[in-house]
Design a protein around this nucleic acid. Structure first.
Lengths: 337, 337
DNA sequence: CTGAAAGCGCTTACAG
DNA sequence: CTGAAAGCGCTTACAG
């Protein structure tokens, strides 16, 4: 009897348990996966098998089990980063909620790299995921197409696509509210409305553009001039935001709309190197409990992660071909003292 | 020919590709998994099969493939949280480094719940993980035993266990250095050494106790009295830290050793509600770029995540039965202006 | 050089 | 009521 070599050779199978328990492999299988009630196997046998399984440290081979079963119950998620409050919270709550629904969540982190995103999606298809949640992807439609070919449903989270339902923050409304707050606070601080900058994110990124649109709407509404040269969208990284600040000519009385805490890291690092600018006020589209304590910070916009995930699972439960329309959730504006 | 029902019915198999390409399933398999070079299959056939696979959106069934193969190359990790810089960075870098080594990382988040930790470990065993990295677990030894029964190696990260190699920060040394810095800065600020508090973490937690030991060593060394009633270890959460602060009687000239950014959230929230205490100085054992900007913060201790993971993979590559000794990496003390 | 066949560990419809 | 047998999709040693 040849057994698989390597590490797995020690793992007991249902055949091992059956031999030890003096039962058939079929019986062992049904006892261990709970379908034995239907089969009227004697409680004594069931107990014995369960005890032996425990003694042997048996763990079902999920690969074999999934291969045989009709459904995998695996739900995949790709997410750009873990190490930031927003995506960290998304990943964590997604796992918890998926488990609570009896699904097996598998998450992978794709570093905002379109190729990695695509490879990760393909990988999750290989694992027989039944649904794939595509979070903050640069090219969600390409992934939706790949998955559609295998009959796997995708749902876009955070960034929208055109080939699957999308669940987003109301970036326009949130940015408009935040801009209003920044204008109000800066005007109070300086006695007059100062020039207003927009820093962070990138051109062609849907959320950044929506936020810029909200920013602009709030400017227009209050009669503030909108100046394209005061819009700095160098991409997502503290370093890039820092470099963009270097290039800008920020006066001592200014206000900044910071697009994401990632950009904020660069902005505050730069501000700290320019103490003459300590009067500058900013607000940030994103939430971070420590950033909320910075004295120049007038307010932060928190995205409703729990609400977005609740909506996500609502769409999943609804099943079928949901529309590809975007569902937008309001953001929570947190003014700071 | 009955095919599996449900979602998977659309997924093409090597048999489908073989039929379309006019080749044998064996040939298709070896072409797609790269072993065809050995088999001297004609380049023309290979090309054709690869093209057809792409057209059909073929993705190998990892379950079937793993079931048949000798090794899974899966490396599992359990981690308490994602939504915090330290564990977020661990998860993210772990994924990247594992992939670079040709392994398949699977991470699951266990919320510091011992039962969830155990269930997650069992789950990863079921997925045929060959190695399990047990990060910050409350009971790593129980997991090591479970895995040992299946011949699966475990390695403890961040919190030590006695049944597997452990990779840790030098919590004692890091805490001692941080305490020295806090004492020095507070003495400069107040003209004399103020009473020193220790806030955060929990009793019986190895890292917390090591840090407390380092804290105490630095107190002793500098002739500061160590007062047990100034040690508050209410567990890991901002709320608990906040409540502990409520109960303490902190004077206007005081200094605090804050054990983790999680506790720091509660501490600063409390300090902000007590403006009379704005002279209080603190340092924090953990790193966060925004917390680093808080004016009362004299320094932060960054754990060397990259170094720990490099060490982790060194131990894994070394294979065999490495000792169960703990490997301790120095922390990086970041004094703040 | 290449394909048919065995078998990975499980699940479940089916025969007895 | 219960066990033997088929088969999930793949990989690879083996026969030709």
């Amino acid at each position: 009897m040849t057994r698989k070599g390597g590490v797995s050779s020690k793992r007991p199978t249902i055949y091992d348990l059956a031999r030890i328990a003096g039962a058939s492999p079929s019986a062992v299988s049904s006892i261990l996966n709970g379908s034995w009630e239907k089969r009227r196997i004697s409680a004594a046998t069931a107990k014995r098998v369960i005890r032996i399984a425990q003694e042997q440290g048996y763990a079902v081979n999920r690969q074999a089990s999934l291969l045989r079963r009709d459904r995998s119950h695996i739900i995949g998620m790709i997410v750009p980063k873990y190490d930031n409050r927003y995506f960290g919270a998304i990943a964590e709550q997604f796992e918890t909620m998926a488990r609570a629904k009896g699904l097996f969540p598998v998450i992978t982190c794709t570093q905002r790299d379109p190729e990695l995103e695509f490879e990760a999606a393909r990988e999750l298809l290989s694992y027989q995921a039944e649904t794939l949640v595509v979070t903050g992807a640069t090219d969600p439609d390409r992934i939706s197409e790949l998955c559609a070919a295998s009959g796997v449903r995708t749902i876009n989270l955070d960034l929208p696509g055109s080939k699957a339902p999308s669940i987003l923050s109301d970036n326009f409304g949130g940015a408009k509210d935040l801009t209003r707050l920044i204008l109000k606070r800066a005007t109070e601080a300086f006695g007059a409305a100062p020039p207003l900058w927009f820093v962070g994110g990138r051109q062609h990124d849907h959320n950044s553009m929506e936020r810029l649109r909200g920013f602009r709407a709030a400017c227009d509404e209050s009669g503030q001039p909108f100046a394209p040269q005061r819009v700095l969208m160098p991409g997502y990284s503290p370093q890039k935001a820092f470099a963009a600040m270097e290039g800008a000519e920020i006066p001592q009385q200014a206000a900044i709309f910071v697009n994401s805490t990632i950009a904020l890291e660069g902005v505050v690092r730069w501000l700290n190197q320019h103490p003459s600018l300590k009067a500058v006020r900013f607000g940030c589209f994103d939430w971070d409990p420590f950033a909320a304590l910075l004295p120049q910070n007038v307010g932060m916009t928190e995205q409703d992660v729990t609400g977005m995930l609740a909506e996500l699972f609502r769409v999943i439960d609804a099943g079928g071909q949901s529309s590809t329309a975007a569902i937008k959730l309001p953001c929570i504006l947190r003014p700071l003292p």
